[in-house]
């Protein structure tokens, strides 16, 4: 501010005294900094619904949480879920973007259709899929009609595969957003490069693999990072479809937090959300760093 401020006319400083920042800053502090700060503070207390006093409890909550297998299981489930969502959401989004790349009237209409789930309520999506995937739900009905036999697959009842099914539902809801970002990325690729490749006789696959996909790097960075880190905070879709079942195999950390909070153990729930925050932070840096490195080709 000191060195290049010399080039700026003095009057502009007078237009914007710093205390004008106070209203915005106050909102930021009250609704963002203080809650985040308290997320750290309460994790070290014994705050609960059972008594009114809040006492400092040291690292008690951390030791009891980590000695209890449920937290580690939830952390593992959350990670697996996030990776699966990132994978599916980007596969679906990229596939749709490539399919709907040309600006025809039909493509425009179809793009809108695929974007609708993004603006739908996640709980509504969850409940719709829960109804579709029931043993006597519509999906089994369609499969039964096609095969001519009675089909009663419990799609949400497998302790191994349900997490994949739920991740696909999550990816289905958000794939429209990934599609949109990939479409924007495809539009920025220089037509000359593609034309040169065509003249060199490159096949469509080679062109995608060697030119278009590497040039999509910024879109990939954004999509993978938001899908991965966003789904670590997942709650609504899983709560609506499985509530963490069957057998705790889809119990995301947020569902565990919700359950703990509901038991009145507010401090423990805060501790868990701190653990989740740290996990997202720890994961975010290397992932984003790696993805940004891929952009060096540009």
């Amino acid at each position: 501010m000191s060195s290049n401020a010399l080039g700026v006319p003095r009057s502009r400083h007078r237009d914007h005294p710093l205390w004008f920042l106070i209203p915005a800053l106050a909102v930021l502090v009250v609704f963002f900094f203080v809650p985040t700060l308290f997320n750290f503070v309460y994790a070290f207390t014994d705050w609960s619904s059972f008594k009114s006093a809040i006492n400092f409890a040291g690292t008690d909550n951390f030791t009891s949480l980590f000695s209890n297998g449920t937290l580690l299981n939830s952390l593992k489930v959350t990670l697996v879920y996030a990776v699966l969502v990132a994978l599916f959401q980007n596969l679906f989004g990229l596939g749709l973007a490539l399919l709907l790349e040309r600006d025809t009237a039909v493509n425009r209409a179809v793009r809108v259709a695929f974007f609708i789930p993004v603006v739908m309520s996640a709980l509504a999506v969850g409940y719709i899929f829960q109804a579709l995937l029931k043993p006597d739900g519509a999906l089994n009905g369609i499969l039964g009609w096609l095969t001519g036999t009675e089909v009663a697959i419990p799609w949400l009842g497998s302790t191994t595969w349900t997490i994949v099914v739920v991740a696909i539902v999550h990816a289905w809801k958000w794939m429209g957003l990934s599609m949109l970002i990939y479409l924007a990325g495809l539009k920025t690729i220089n037509e000359d490069v593609l034309e040169a490749a065509r003249l060199d006789g490159a096949s469509r696959w080679t062109m995608f693999r060697a030119i278009r996909f590497p040039l999509l790097a910024p879109a990939v960075t954004f999509n993978v990072a938001t899908a991965l880190l966003g789904s670590m905070n997942g709650f609504d879709i899983v709560q609506a479809t499985t509530e963490g079942g069957p057998g705790g195999t889809t119990e995301l950390l947020n569902i565990f937090i919700f359950r703990t909070f509901g038991q009145g153990l507010f401090a423990q729930a805060t501790t868990m959300s701190l653990v989740l925050f740290l996990m997202v932070a720890i994961l975010a840096f290397p992932v984003i760093r790696y993805l940004r490195k891929r952009e060096d080709v540009l």
Binding site: L25, A26, V29, V30, F33, V34, L37, V41, A53, I54
Partner: peptide, 18 residues
């Protein structure tokens, strides 16, 4: 000092009680 003031006010506002 503005920032410190705002932060202090917010902490005082929220307080550390149930």
């Amino acid at each position: 000092s503005t920032l410190a003031l705002a932060a202090a006010a917010a902490v005082a506002l929220a307080g550390c009680s149930d």
